[in-house]
Amino acid sequence: MRRSEMLSRMLVIAGVLIVLLVPLAVRFYDGQGIVEIHGRMAETGGWSPSAIKAQVGVPLHLRLTSDDVMHGFAIGQSEMAAVDVPPGKMTELTLTFDKPGTYTYYCTRWCGLNHWRMRGTIEVTSDGLGAPQPVSPPLYVTLNLDIDAPHPAPVTPLERPSALRGAAFTALLPPSYLTTDYYRSYSPAQAFNDLRSDPALKSLNNAQLWDIVAFIWQSNTTPEGLAAGKQLFAQNCAACHGENGAGNGVFADKLAAAGEKSSEDMTGAKGMQMKKPVNFTDPANMLGASPALLLGKTIRGGMGTGMPMWGSIFTDEKTWNIIAYLYSFHFTEVTK
C-alpha cells in the first residue's frame, strides 16, 4: 500500500475516533463523584434518578438538567433557595446535610397538571452519630379531626369583618381567645359562636363579634408572615386555586375534566376523584375550617382529588403562613 493511502486512512480513522471517544472520555471523567439528575414532566418520568443517597456532613455534588421544559429544584422542609433547572443546561449545586433523615426534593416551577408529582428523595445517613429528628404528630391528628368531612360554616358574616374595627374591643375580650392554641383549633364560625355565647361580650352585635374574630385571626399572624404566605400561595397554589383564590386557576378545568376517569384504580373500583379546586373566597366553606383542619388538608393532601401533599415540602411555619393568607380573602385590613 502506498504511504499516502496509509496516511489518509489513518487520518480518517483518527478523525472518527477523536470525535467519538473524546466526548465520551470527558463525560466519564468529568462526572466522577457527581450525581446528575434529569428532570422531565411527571407524565414522562419526573426526576431521574428519583432516589439518592448521601451522608451527613459529606458534600453532595449535583448536576441538574431538564429534558423538556423549565423545572426548578429545592429541598423540602428546608430554607434552601430554589434553583432553576432550565432545559438543555446544567445547573450545578452542592448540598451538605447536617442531620440524617429522608429529604424530599421537588420541582419548583409549574410544569403541567402533575407538576407536584415531580419529587424525589435523598436518604441521608450518618455513621452512628445523630438520630433522626423525633417527629411529633401534626395538630389535626392530636385534635382528632376528620379532614375529609365537609365543614360548612353554620354562620357567616353579612359584611366583610374588619380586624381594625375588632381591635377596638380588645378591652372586653377575655385573653384566652387570643392564644395561638385557640386560633389554630377553631374555625372562625366556631369562634364567632363562642364569642356570641360569652357573657363578657353580650353587648356586642354580630357584625362587631365578626370584627373581633378578624382581629383574633390577625393577631396570630404578622405582615411578614402574610407576605410570605401570599408568595407561597402564588407559587404553589394559584395554578389550581386561582390567583385570587376563587378556585378558578389555569388547571381548574383540566382537574374537573379529569373527574370520573381519574377515580378508577387499577382494579376499576371507584375511589376519590379529581375535582375542581376549592374556592377559598366562599365564606360558607372557608369560615367553617379551622387552621388545624387546613393544615391537615395541606400537609396530607387530597388523596386522589388532585390536591398535592405538602407535608414533606413546607416547614410548619410556611404552612401556617399560607393558611393565614387564605383567611385574608375574608377579613379586611388584616395586613394593616
Binding site: 421544559v69 409549574w110 410544569c111 403541567g112 389550581c240 389555569v250 388547571f251
Partner: peptide, 26 residues
C-alpha cells in the same frame, strides 16, 4: 401573559422586550 401548562415567555420581535410567566402567576 397567562401560562396554562408550563413556564412560557413572550418576546416581541422588533421591540426586543419580553416577559415570562409561570402557571398561576400572571
Amino acid at each position: 401573559l397567562v401560562s396554562t401548562d408550563v413556564v412560557h415567555g413572550l418576546y416581541v420581535d422588533g421591540y426586543g422586550v419580553s416577559v415570562t410567566a409561570d402557571p398561576g402567576q400572571t
